[in-house]
């Protein structure tokens, strides 16, 4: 049993597993974001009637969770391994449990439970129902059936499986401290990210210039709107993501009052919904190509 998989070996195993099951392997999307759901390979592809399967790693930034690299569990940036299966297959739970085996986790030797946990994203205009998956009492995965994305009903419904890689790695490697995780056989997580954690924490909590961030937010918002007017939805969405991250920074800095918060969220959500609409119209005009040409992608 590969009891001491390194962090990168876990990623390789999961990519192999899901790649073998028809998932398109894409790579982290190069704009800052809080969760893998915000990658266009999920946000856009969950929309509309076309089938889709994908898997990828997503570094996810949460400025408010930052702890200067001093907390063994909480991080500014963690890594999600994201899987989208659309439509959700009947045996989706069994597939997921089989994927744990490639990480050396034999379900029979553990207590694995699906505990209700529903998901809602106020910025993406999205929600779904599902569970958090517990491995011996630890939440290792979010499992969600998307019901709505960008304000649109999801038909068919995609299943989203999001592994928390740091959590899994501390478990698999038997440590209480994420910084002691072996990223590769030679390099520890601390070497990779301790300084990064400190600097990003310092920036988010102490250094960030809120006036600059506020004006950036407005500039990004405006640019997103201009792109939408021109019908170019992908650059528009890039700016939506930038708005979202800038908002997260402002909030971590304590620069957003309670009453302003809802306003900000509404503005981002409005843009995300507009992106969803433009994207859907574009796919429709193209005749939803994956409904026919992409059949082999959807097949097992």
């Amino acid at each position: 049993m590969p009891g001491k998989l390194t962090f990168q070996a876990m990623i390789l195993e999961l990519q192999q597993f899901w790649g073998d099951r028809g998932c398109v392997l894409v790579h982290p999307y190069d704009v800052e974001k809080g969760a893998g759901t915000m990658n266009p390979a999920t946000f856009f592809r969950a929309l509309g009637p076309e089938p889709w399967r994908t898997a990828y790693v997503e570094p996810s930034r949460r400025p408010a969770d930052a702890r200067y690299g001093e907390n063994p569990n909480r991080l500014y940036q963690h890594h999600q391994f994201q899987v989208i299966l659309k439509p959700s297959p009947d045996e989706v739970q069994e597939l997921y449990l089989a994927s744990l085996r490639v990480l050396g986790i034999v379900p029979e030797d553990h207590d694995i439970r699906f505990v209700e946990d529903n998901w809602e994203s106020p910025t993406l205009g999205a929600w779904g129902l599902g569970w958090e998956v517990w491995l011996d009492g630890m939440e290792i995965t979010q499992f969600t059936y998307f019901q709505q994305m960008g304000g649109y009903e999801c038909r068919p419904v995609a299943a989203e499986i999001t592994y928390g890689l740091e959590r899994l790695a501390t478990y698999i490697q038997g440590t209480d401290d994420v910084f002691q995780v072996a990223w590769s056989t030679d390099i520890a997580y601390a070497e990779m990210f301790r300084r990064e954690e400190f600097e990003q924490s310092r920036y988010g909590f102490d250094v960030a210039d809120t006036a600059v961030l506020s004006s950036l937010f407005q500039a990004y918002e405006k640019e997103a709107g201009r792109c939408l007017e021109d019908g170019i939805v992908r650059p528009a969405f890039d700016y939506v993501l930038k708005c979202s991250h800038t908002f997260n920074l402002l909030e971590a800095r304590g620069a957003i009052s309670a009453t302003e918060r809802t306003g900000y969220l509404g503005r981002i959500r409005g843009l995300a919904k507009a992106c969803a609409g433009v994207y859907l119209r574009g796919r429709e005009q193209a005749g939803f190509p994956l409904l026919t040409a992409g059949r082999e992608v959807a097949a097992e």
Binding site: E108, D109, H110, D111, L135, D136, G137, M138
Partner: peptide, 18 residues
């Protein structure tokens, strides 16, 4: 736990860690 006694030490250790 949802299950029997198999792997109980692992399950206990995992829960204690969490």
């Amino acid at each position: 736990r949802n299950g029997g006694d198999r792997g109980m030490e692992t399950v206990r250790a995992g829960n204690e860690k969490v």
